[in-house]
């Protein structure tokens, strides 16, 4: 009963097993690669070879559909986990110098006294993306736009690195022991609202999204209303507008105030 004798065409089991297996494979392959493509109503096959290729899943080059008129207010930034590019060795130092002009609004330590967003410890990807959007005009603000216009790619990367490097100091916002509102923790599934916390801190973070804890309530609220009205559109494929549009004014108020009241050291995902 040596195994070699089984693995030989002289063995009846071998002949039968290989024959049946091959037979089933050939039959199903004929069905899948020839019969099926010709029977598919939405597939226009250009001959047998094309039928086989389509059924095998040979990749087709993406269709280049002409886009509609470009909207200047949509972002041009590509957000991935590799954003921004690896900083230069002197990025933080250079960023610190550049950041002096930002201190009036965003505070000398990146903590604002003027209802502008706190930037200390903010994710580099989030800062970089917003600077880029201000520069291209996808996001417009009377104060920010002129500053951003003159920033180079390197400037924006260095600013992002510098602010990301700063420690997340507690802001000037009172720390309160309030339970998180439902909209932050649970969202509203039937309105298609995921929890705020699943992208902006408290539950998890999504690349490109800022963390919001300790941010001024007035700022967060204004941005949510801007997203809801469509005034602000630099979120990729409407990901924020989808949410803000369906939030009630009360929910916007609650979420903004709760985030503002949270100590900015509460970071769950870092």
């Amino acid at each position: 009963m040596s195994e070699d004798s089984v693995l030989s065409p002289r063995n009846a089991w071998f002949r039968r097993a290989v024959g049946v297996t091959a037979g089933i494979f050939v039959a199903t392959a004929l069905g899948g690669f020839v019969l099926l493509p010709y029977a598919q109503p939405d597939l226009k096959v250009a001959g047998l070879w094309d039928a086989i290729c389509s059924a095998a899943g040979v990749v087709r080059t993406p269709s280049a559909q002409a886009p509609a008129e470009p909207d200047a207010r949509l972002t041009k930034v590509v957000v991935t986990s590799a954003l921004p590019a690896t900083p230069a060795p002197d990025a933080i130092g250079r960023g610190a110098t550049l950041a002096q002009q930002c201190a009036i609004c965003h505070g000398p330590t990146g903590v604002s006294r003027a209802d502008s967003p706190n930037l200390a410890g903010q994710y580099a990807a989030a800062i970089y993306k917003q600077l880029m959007d201000f520069k291209t005009g996808a996001r417009v603000n009377a104060v920010m736009t002129p500053f951003a216009k003159d920033l180079s790619e390197r400037d924006m990367q260095d600013l992002a690195s510098y602010y990301a490097f700063l420690p997340r100091l507690p802001g000037y916002h009172p720390v309160q022991e309030k339970p998180a509102p439902r909209i932050v923790i649970n969202g509203a599934p039937m309105r298609g609202i995921a929890p705020c916390g699943s992208c902006h801190g408290a539950l998890d973070n999504k690349t490109g999204s800022p963390w919001l804890e300790g941010q001024p309530a007035a700022y967060v609220k204004a941005q949510l209303f801007a997203f809801a009205s469509g005034e602000r559109r630099n979120d990729i494929s409407q990901q924020m507008r989808n949410i803000a549009r369906r939030m009630t004014p009360e929910e916007i108020q609650l979420a903004s105030e709760w985030y503002a009241s949270q100590p900015s050291t509460t970071i769950h995902t870092n």
Binding site: Q40, A64, P67, V78, S237
Partner: peptide, 24 residues
């Protein structure tokens, strides 16, 4: 029936050009 053809698209840039831009 199952999808007849396999098509690729570059995911991180779909909002910039091609078929899946916001206006489309």
């Amino acid at each position: 029936m199952p999808q007849a053809r396999v098509e690729t698209v570059e995911p991180q840039t779909i909002h910039l050009s091609g078929e899946f831009t916001e206006a489309n």
